[in-house]
Amino acid sequence: MDTLQYALRKLVTGIPLVLGVTFISFVLMVYFGPDKTYDLIGKNATPEQIAEIRADLGYDQPFFVRYGDYLRELVTLDFGYSDSTGERVSRILARTIPISLALTLPGFILGNALGVLLALIAGFFRGGLIDRAIMAGAVVGMSISFLIIIIGFQVLLSSSYGLNYFPVRGWEVYSLGDYLYYVTVPTLAIVFVSLGYNTRFYRAVVVEEMNRDHVRTARAFGTPPAKLLFRNVLRNAAIPIMTRIMFSIPLVVISGSLLIESYFGIPGVGKVTYDAITTGDQPILKAVVGATAVLFVLTLIATDVMYKVIDPRVSLK
């Protein structure tokens, strides 16, 4: 009950954030954005026709009325119809978001799990050869561009110049076998691009935790290494680790899938966003930005509630 109350109160404090995000994106993308009138109009239109289209698009309304409309759309989850395909925006999102989740989640989970594991190993042997090898690997990983990784993996795994085991592009998933067939290369790319950053971040967390007095106490009472790492270190490092994971969720789902999907031609929300960027499809962009902002606020709340579960010292005030 306390938790629910707390979450509700947090929700209220999240409102300024959502207002800020929507306001800035509204100003940039819609108010100063491209004028769609001439895209929608036939040749030799009369001034009346032009005025009609402009009224349809809401261009004749004052600034705050248009912004208010955007907020209303966000609250009712009704963003109207896509400019380019005419499909309902909410239906497009409902169709594409699951695809993006299926595409990015395995890589996201593996990238973080492996990162934590490598960080624990490096932290345990800190200063030693294994630590230095892992950290050198992390710097190399951090230095390779995502685009290079994607192209590289595609050439090596999906083309006739490499192993040619996996599809070059597309997403025709009807069974688990299909899923594995299409998801492998994107997953490898996501793991590879995130592993270096994750390992470095988590190692810093692990090392800080290893230096704590209670870890020394645990050692002094004969705790074996595996237990020391997973019970004493990982459990106490859970807060920074969870925070990082939670906060990267909204960006991974949108930004992370944008590049992968547009490169592999996968019809997820990233591809839809990319197409909307290139064609200036404002209803979709407004929906994506608004949804991300709301997702951020929800993440914020979920993270705070999780703190309490993880750490008995945290009380939700």
Binding site: R212, D213, H214, T217, A218, R235, N236, I310, D311, P312
Partner: peptide, 10 residues
Amino acid sequence: EPMTALNPVF
């Protein structure tokens, strides 16, 4: 340091 020598989460 009795304040920090015990594991805070157990």
